[in-house]
């Protein structure tokens, strides 16, 4: 994966796209977890959401740029 990507002729770091994609995935996960009421197994839902986002983002980032 290239380090940078041209968005409307502006070169932006590709990790920005990863960031946006992870936000989308987090939103999907949040909806599913909320729908099945699984947040009752979680201590602080907002802390949990932030942590899940960091796990996703870092894992994808590290995988794409070995």
């Amino acid at each position: 994966m290239p380090r940078e990507i041209a968005l409307a002729d502006a070169l932006v770091p590709s990790i920005l796209l990863v960031y946006l994609g992870c936000l989308l995935v987090l939103w999907v996960i949040d909806t599913i977890v909320g729908h099945y009421g699984l947040y009752r197994y979680v201590w602080h839902p907002s802390l949990f959401r932030v942590a899940v986002f960091f796990v996703l983002f870092s894992a994808v980032g590290l995988l794409l740029y070995p």
Binding site: Y41, V42, W43, H44, L47, F48, V50, A51, V52, F53, F54, V55, F57, S58, A59, L62
Partner: peptide, 13 residues
């Protein structure tokens, strides 16, 4: 559960 996810997030981050 929360603590585990937070710790993994910190390490990966």
């Amino acid at each position: 559960i929360t603590a585990a996810v937070v710790i993994v997030a910190l390490l990966l981050g």
